[in-house]
Simulated scan of single mutants.
Amino acid sequence: MQAGIVFVFPGQGSQYVGMGKELAQAFPIAAQTFKEAEETLGWPLTKLCFEGPPEELAQTQITQPAVLAVEVACLRVLTEHGVEPQAAAGHSLGEYAALVAAGSLSFPQALKLVARRGELMAQACAPGKGGMVAVLGVSAAQVEEICRRVKRGVAEPANYNAPGQVVVAGDQEGLEELMELARKEGAKRVVQLNVSGPFHSSLMKPAAEGLKVELERVTFSRPRIPVVSNVTADYVQEVEEIRQNLITQVASPVRWEESIKRLISDGFEIFIEVGPGNVLSGLVRRIAPEVKLARVEDPETLVNTLKMLGKEG
């Protein structure tokens, strides 16, 4: 496969108040994207993205469509400037933006799906009953072994993000035991994440079942460019495979490190993070220090990316 550009789209946790605002002020196509999102969903997404309040923006049923809207706004601005991806991948929620970039899903379809996905994920586990913990500085195999030793509750690997960084999801009892064990096993850091549920674990199975109903109503198209699935860390091409992977994804681990390695093994050398924050840029840098990295979330980062690619702003 020819060396080329990969667009990578972040997931939940990358949101912040003010995301997308400068882009929408600078580029009519970005402003139109937010307007389209509001018309599709019927609630003030733009105000929540630009002004908050942060506690409302952090509610998963709001976070998911809000982050997607920012990602598609950034995607459209990039396309307008002549930057097209040759492949795409997204972390968790970001996979929906990757499918929009590949022409498999329309933006309104993706918005409705992630809004429902957020509702189902919020309902699957009561607030305060479950969460996620990042375990840093030990191998994935060690984290898996520690999870197997947890007896008091649920603790399961949820995100294989980068070498020495695995996120575990579970209920509070399981995560407390996991944190104790991980520290004893020499983890450099064990960090409880500011998320509202145990995403990508078996505790999300009710959400996966509910999402299955929604996904079976949607018409997908074959992707125009290679898209790497979180579930398989491989390319998805068939419509039914895309649908099934999005169902499975809700209660299964995100295999991000493997996904990036797959793209690099096929010759992709430029990774552009499209959307709020720089979480994925940091992960890609840890996985493959040799690749070229850029990101686009506002006019300044757009200019920097266009310069790196040798294009005029």
Rank of each mutant, 00 (worst) to 15 (best):
F9A: 03
Q59S: 10
L181M: 12
E258L: 11
V143C: 11
L309E: 00
E56V: 15
A158C: 12
E312I: 09
L48C: 15
M204D: 01
E257A: 08
L105Q: 05
A69M: 04
L41W: 05
N159D: 08
L309T: 03
A169F: 04
V133K: 07
G52Q: 05
E238H: 12
L306S: 06
P108H: 00
K151I: 05
G277P: 14
E216A: 09
Y16C: 13
G197E: 03
A87V: 05
V274G: 13
E39Y: 04
P226Q: 00
V150H: 05
V114F: 00
P299S: 00
S201I: 06
E257Y: 02
D234E: 15
A31F: 06
I287K: 11
V190Q: 04
Q123E: 13
E39R: 12
S265V: 00
D171P: 13
T63Y: 01
F27Y: 15
V291R: 06
V67W: 06
R217T: 14
G137C: 03
T232P: 14
V291W: 01
Q237E: 14
A141W: 10
E38R: 04
G186M: 01
A97S: 11
Q15L: 08
F199T: 12
M121P: 15
L23F: 10
I287M: 10
F7G: 03
V274E: 06
V228Q: 02
V168N: 01
V296L: 11
L75Q: 14
R222E: 15
G52V: 01
T63K: 04
R148T: 06
V236M: 09
E95K: 12
I264M: 10
E300I: 12
A141K: 15
